[in-house]
Design a protein around this nucleic acid. Structure first.
Lengths: 237, 237
DNA sequence: ACTCAAATTTGATCTGAGTCAATTGGCTTT
DNA sequence: AAAGCCAATTGACTCAGATCAAATTTGAGT
């Protein structure tokens, strides 16, 4: 929540070495289009805890996450927070109908995004239906994830929520270095609680319980999944 | 849950008198396109309680709701149910990436849908980016609603959930006959409970409490909103 | 109107997760 | 290495909403 000091690099030919070129919205563009496209985007860096955009902000940009993790959340007037998702490299943010973002986004650790001004991006899309189709795909995938998360929030116990989260997070990180039993958790316990609709104490107690039962080991900056099968069983229940 | 006896009318010029022509996906089509489009769709009728499609079904069709209300839900292996939304006339269903529906849909009362076979619909979209843009709009709107619902499920009390639901449902029915304080509730208490992440008993008790406090009156087939301001206050809290 | 089944309401009790309150542990700064 | 700070853990207790168990009410079919 420090003042937002961002570093804006000059636009240029940086798609070439972009880590998410194949995964992100860009995957729908051919080489020539990509060359044109890269003039629209600028790499912007955010430090840990900085807010990339806020819920009621007028949407002026779209964002493609290049590096790092972000928390996406909504606040109630009295301060209660619900994290609606975590964004990882390759995720595309900023689509909306109202002209305002309908959630806020903070950097968890250092984050780099590819930022596109709304108007030129809109014009670029105009005559490129395959890019629109790609964006639509991403929206539909998110919608499916959102529905899964509703089931978790509305109908699962604390144990099930935590087990499901750990397995789901591990799965999302597969792109990194394959499926690993060492699962880094860059977000705080409070973030996890606000994502799962629990309190920080319940999350902590559940982690401890899972460790006592030999399902996980709590390690520095994450957990190690000792018994994936048992975790799956807990999550499915 | 009776066997699915559906009535399929012959395809023909029925878009002319379609109640949702202006609201649905069709709103992005001009007169000539609409004429071509109507040959793709068939009106299909479902009786109360019938299942229109199930979660793991291979997607063979898309649906445009014409009349009635549907519940959209997901089930856990042990039978717990989360309703992820209610569909009303004008809503478009069936989009997905996996090739399977990722939720189930039942008719609540009699329902009429406009059913499109997947392949011809896909071909029709192909060279009509404005229809794709319309579908994208609908997906983004749903995504926004889904996030709001996550906040409700994860962070709101039973009283807030019920008040928010009643106001939100009233709002969704504005298209019908304007904003009315008489709010029909075609779905059962169990449906409301499964939508709000509560039990049927808690929903019933909360209705009774709201009535005791003069906020609503429970009437046949719905409620009457006596004190909208107080309901708003409860929902905002 | 009469019967039966299902939906809803109401009551009594229980419990999973929340709340409140210390500790403990890990970093950072000096 | 001591001090200070914030995040995480642990413990004791509470409570909102779940569960269990009856009534009621509603509705469809005869």
């Amino acid at each position: 929540m420090k003042p937002s000091v961002v570093t804006i690099e000059p636009s240029g030919h940086f798609c070439d070495d972009c880590a998410v070129r194949g995964a992100a919205v860009c995957s729908s563009l051919d080489a020539a289009e990509l060359r044109e496209f890269e003039h629209l985007g600028r790499r912007v860096h955010f430090d840990s805890g900085e807010t990339v955009f806020s819920e009621e902000d007028i949407t002026t940009s779209f964002y493609n996450v290049l590096e790092g993790v972000m928390r996406l959340y909504k606040l109630l007037p009295d301060g209660r927070r619900q994290i609606v998702g975590f964004a990882l490299p390759g995720d595309f943010l900023g689509m909306n109908l109202s002209g305002r973002h309908n959630f806020s986004a903070d950097a968890i650790g250092a984050v780099t995004v590819c930022q596109f001004a709304k108007a030129p991006f809109g014009r670029f899309i105009e005559d490129r239906p395959q890019l629109l189709r790609r964006i639509n795909e991403l929206a539909i995938r998110e919608l499916s994830q959102a529905r899964d998360h509703m089931v978790l929030l509305g109908r699962r116990s604390a144990d099930e929520k935590v087990a499901t989260f750990l397995l789901g997070w591990r799965e999302r990180l597969v792109g990194r270095n394959g499926l690993s039993d060492t699962v880094p958790l860059p977000m705080s316990r409070q973030d996890i609680a606000d994502y799962l609709g629990l309190t920080i104490e319940t999350v902590s107690r559940t982690f401890t319980k899972l460790e006592r039962h030999g399902v996980i080991e709590i390690i520095h900056g994450g957990i190690s999944l000792l018994d994936p099968a048992r975790a799956e069983a807990l999550a499915a229940a």
